[in-house]
Design a protein around this nucleic acid. Structure first.
Lengths: 201, 201, 201, 201
DNA sequence: GATGAATGAGTATTCATTCAT
DNA sequence: CATGAATGAATACTCATTCAT
C-alpha cells in the first residue's frame, strides 16, 4: 500500500475500497474486476483509490490478505480442547461455510490466479499456518497411526473442505445442512478410519 | 462457433486454436488470455481465430467444453463392473489426476469465471452427467443405507476430488502417490462408513 | 451518451469531439470516419472520446442531431410574418445554403446511411417539425387551393430545396447567386401556380 | 475490371456480382458494404469476385456506372418530340421513379461518397450528358427567355427531381401518385413561368 | 486530500485481399 | 477457373493510471 491511512476517515476509505474489491471480484470475476468499478462500488473516486493503492495488483493483494486472514481467524478459533471430534468438525465446517456465504466464490477466484507462488509470498505463509492448524487437529484426533504424516492428512482434509465448500458456493447450496453434515461425516470417517491397506474391498 | 470447419485444413486450425487456448489459459490465467496471444501460440493469424470464433468468450466456451468432455470421458471409462471398490477408486482418481497434469489449473480457471450458471447452460449439462456417473458408483458400492441420497454422497465425493486435485495442481504435487493414496482412502472410508449419527466421538 | 459532461472542461471536450466528427464526416465521408481520426482532429485522446460516447454510432448520432438542430433553427427563424413571398423564400434559401456551406456534404452523408428509420427515431421527430414549418409557410402563401394538402406541397418544396442545395454542395456551387435565384423562382412559381390540371400544355 | 468476361458463364458471374453489389449498397449502406458480403449475396466465392474486380473500389465503380447508365437510358428514351410538356414530364418523372423503386437509396448512396470529382471522371461525363438531355428539353419547352441559361434551369430541375425522388425513396413513398403529380406540377410551372423579377408578390 | 477528466498503451475485432488446393 | 481458408494491417474500444483543479 502506498501510504498508511492515519486518520479515521482514511481508514474508512481504505476499508470501503477493500470491501468493494472483494465484492466486485466475487460478483464479476477476474474479467469484471476493474479499478474504476471498484472505486465506484466503494463510493470513492478513482483518484482516491490510487491514493492508497499504487496499482491494481496491490489492491488484489489487499483483498486476498483480508480474506485469508478471515479464514485463518476461523481456524485459530476452532480450538480442539477436549471437544469430541464430531463437535470440532461441526464447528469448523460450519464457521467456514458461513464465512464463504458472504462472498461466495471469492476464495476460489483469489486462489486461481496463481499469484507469484514462491515459498515466501503471503499466500504460502498463510497456507503454512492454515495447514499447521489442521495438522494439530489431526494429531489430536487421529486414531490409527499409518506411515502417512499428519501434514498430508491435514492437506487432504483441507483441500476436500475447500472443494466441497467452493462448489457449494458455485451452486448456491452453501446453507444446506445436508451438505454440511455429509462433509463432516466424510472427514470424521477419514480421521477415524484404518490405514489404506486394510479391507476396503 | 461462427463457421463449421469443413475441410481437413480448417479442422486442424480450429483444433490448434482450442488447444492453444487451453494452454494459454492454464499458463497465464485470465489476465494473460488474449486472443492475439492464443492465435500466436496456435501458430495461426488472428484473422483465422475470428473466422471460427465470433468473440473471445466463445473461444473460452469451446475450451471449457473440450475440457469438460475429457473429464466426462474419464468418468464414462471408469466402469465399476465387478471391480472391488479400492480398485475402482484407484483407477478413477489416477486417471483424473493424470488428466489434470497436462494443463494444471485449467479446470479451476474454467469453472470459476462463472458465466451465467443457469440450469440449462452446457456446464450444468456436463455436471448432471458427471454427478450421475458418480451416483451410479455410489449406488453400487455403498454399504450402509442412510437418509442421505446417493446423489448427495456423489456430490460430496466429486467436490472433494475436485478440491484435492486442483490444490495439488496448484502446489505442483499432482504426481505424488501419497496424495493419490490418501484421497482414495478418504473416499473409500466415506463410502464404507456408517451413518453420520453413529459413534464419531 | 455515456456520461453527462458536468464541468466546463468536459463540456468543451464533448463540443470539440462533435465538431470534429462533423468535419471528418464532411471531409472524408463514411470510409474516412474513424474514431481515432475524430479524436485526433478534436485534439483529444481516443480515451476521452469513449468517455462520452459508448461507440462510433452514438457519436454519429450526436453529429446528426446537432446538424438537424441547426437546420431546424433556421426554419424557426424564417418567420413569414407579413413578408412578401419572394422575400421569405429568399431569406430561407439563403440561410439554408449558408448553413450547408460550412460543411458541404455533411447533411447528405448524415441522412443517407439510413439507420432504422422508424417513425419514432430522432430523425423522424426532426422531419415532422421541419415539414411543419414548411407547411405553415405554404398555408400562408399559397394562392390556389387544390385537392393537394399543404403537407404534400411542403414536402415537395423541402425535398426540392434539399436536392438543389446538396447537389450544389457536391459541385462546389453553393455560393452561386444564380442557383439561389432560380431555386427561389421555382418555389415561388410552384406556390403561386394553379392546380395541376390546368393548361400546362 | 481485371479481365473481360468472355464466356457466357463469366458474364453471368460478373452480372451477379454487380447486381449483388447494388443490392447490398442499397440495403446496408456504406458501412455494410463488404466484399465478402457482396460475394455471398451474389452466390459466388470471394475468390471469384477478385477474379473480376481488382479491388473494392473497382466494384463500386462498376455498380455506379451501371446505375448511372440506367438513368441515362431513361433520359435518352424520354424524347420530347412534339409531346406536350405535361406529357413529357409525366413520362420522365414516372420512369425515373420506377427506376429508383428497385433499389431505393442506391443512387443517393452512390453520389454521396464523393468519388474523385475531377472533370474527367465517369461521374462527370455522366452528369454532362444527363444535364445535356435536360437542357435540350428546357430549350424545347421553355416559354419565357430570361438572362438565365438553359443549362442552369436544367440543373435546377434535375436537382429538384433528384431531391424529391430520393427523399421519397427514403420515406418509402416512391409509388405515391400524389408525389409524382406534384413534382410534375412544380417542374411544369417552373418551365412555364415568367422571369424571376416579375410579380412574385 | 479528494475529485473525475484526460491519457494512451494495449486488446478485441473486422475486412480487403491473397493463394494453396 | 472456382473455392474458401488464411492473412494481417487497420479499426473499434477498454482500462490502468496520471494530474490539473
Amino acid at each position: 500500500m502506498r501510504k498508511a491511512p492515519n486518520q479515521a476517515r482514511s481508514r474508512a476509505t481504505v476499508e470501503a475500497i477493500v470491501h468493494a474489491g472483494a465484492r466486485v471480484l466475487a460478483d464479476r470475476g477476474w474479467a469484471g474486476f476493474t479499478t474504476n468499478r471498484v472505486a465506484e462500488v466503494a463510493g470513492v473516486s478513482i483518484g482516491s483509490l490510487y491514493q492508497y493503492f499504487p496499482d491494481k495488483l496491490s489492491l488484489i493483494d489487499a483483498v486476498r490478505r483480508r480474506h485469508l486472514e478471515e479464514c485463518l481467524a476461523i481456524m485459530r478459533a476452532a480450538r480442539h480442547d477436549g471437544k469430541p471430534l464430531g463437535r470440532f468438525l461441526d464447528d469448523l465446517v460450519g464457521d467456514m461455510m458461513a464465512a464463504h456465504d458472504s462472498h461466495p466464490g471469492l476464495h476460489r477466484v483469489l486462489l486461481d490466479e496463481a499469484p507469484a507462488n514462491g515459498p515466501h509470498d503471503p499466500h504460502s505463509a498463510y497456507e503454512r499456518e492454515y495447514l499447521g492448524h489442521y495438522a494439530a487437529a489431526v494429531a489430536a484426533y487421529r486414531r490409527h497411526r499409518t506411515e502417512t504424516g499428519d501434514e498430508t492428512v491435514a492437506m487432504i482434509m483441507s483441500d476436500a473442505v475447500d472443494g466441497v465448500i467452493h462448489n457449494a458456493a458455485r451452486r448456491g447450496t452453501l446453507r444446506s445442512p445436508e451438505v454440511k453434515r455429509e462433509l463432516v461425516r466424510m472427514l470424521a470417517l477419514y480421521l477415524a478410519g484404518p490405514s489404506a491397506d486394510q479391507d476396503l474391498g
